[in-house]
């Protein structure tokens, strides 16, 4: 389906930055370059834990270097950037939001994928509706919380539900979506509602099930056949004020050390052995 120019853009956006990074890495680790001042990073809500840790690591490694994060739904962040919000780096939870950002000229062409994620079902610890597997989400009267269809997590969730309809019956998607009681602006709000026990189930990223919430929720896997793989692209903005620090940040996220932090927080890395 690729038109030639799109293919080139794809190659340019994915391969070039990686090649550059590898070349840079041969000389010295790019993230070891000096970074100072303030760096503003807009990142998908699901990246809250790993990016906070990456931020601490980088701040410790460089003197007088401060990172400010804005974690929210990827769509909200993209909108903020388009409305003129000042940021140096944008990390989205899907290509859709990154492409929209690129189309409106707020981020640069290069947007390498730095992590992947999958979906799980979480239920409150007391599991009031006895959800044991994915198909149980269709039972009548269950209260299901999803991220809104306009944010990546919501789009992936609906994708998984649609795909499962092939096996669970054509009306599976209809029955599940009828159970939706709220559409959240970002995936972390789904986590919060399930933790509070306000809903019977929610669909979130595997990485959202952190040690902190393990005591409050049960996790039910979504079968591999229906599960969606979320891809996270990262890009430097066109209005970046601290360009050197921005490239240090992106390089660190893509480095072995950065990837290890992401994996430790439940993400998948393409560079895993």
């Amino acid at each position: 389906m690729f038109v030639k120019s799109e293919k080139w853009r794809f190659l340019a956006s994915r391969v070039w930055p990686l090649a550059l990074l590898i070349m840079a890495a041969c000389v010295s680790p790019a993230w070891a370059q000096p970074a100072t001042g303030e760096l503003v990073v807009f990142a998908a809500a699901s990246l809250t834990e790993p990016f906070t840790e990456i931020g601490k690591r980088l701040e410790a490694a460089h003197s007088r270097f401060f990172i400010t994060f804005n974690f929210s739904g990827s769509a909200a962040l993209r909108t903020q950037l388009e409305q003129g919000a000042q940021a140096d780096v944008f990390a989205s939870a899907d290509d859709v939001q990154m492409d929209l950002a690129r189309k409106s000229g707020v981020v640069r062409e290069a947007a390498p994928i730095f992590a992947r994620n999958t979906l799980v079902v979480i239920v409150p610890r007391d599991n009031p509706k006895q959800v044991a597997e994915f198909r149980d989400l269709a039972q009548p009267g269950l209260k299901l919380d999803l991220a809104g269809a306009h944010v990546p997590a919501g789009r992936y969730s609906r994708g998984a539900i649609e795909k499962a309809s092939a096996d669970y019956g054509a009306d599976f998607a209809h029955r599940v979506l009828r159970n939706v009681v709220s559409e959240e602006d970002n995936v972390k709000q789904v986590v919060a509602k399930v933790r509070l026990g306000e809903v019977d189930a929610g669909i979130v990223y595997t990485s959202d099930v952190t040690a902190k919430i393990m005591n409050d929720v049960w996790v039910t896997p979504i079968p591999e056949a229906y599960n969606q793989v979320a891809s996270y692209p990262i890009a430097i903005t066109t209005q970046a004020r601290n360009e050197s620090a921005a490239s240090v940040f992106v390089a660190f996220v893509l480095s072995q050390e950065g990837q290890a932090i992401l994996v430790a927080h439940g993400f998948r890395s393409d560079k895993e052995p």
Binding site: G73, T79, V151, S182, K193
Partner: peptide, 25 residues
Amino acid sequence: TIMFAGNLMGRTQTMPLAIYAAMES
């Protein structure tokens, strides 16, 4: 409203919530 009632079209999505949701889409 968005914290207590959630955000679902036709059920709890009032005009201010709809404006907030529509800003992104």
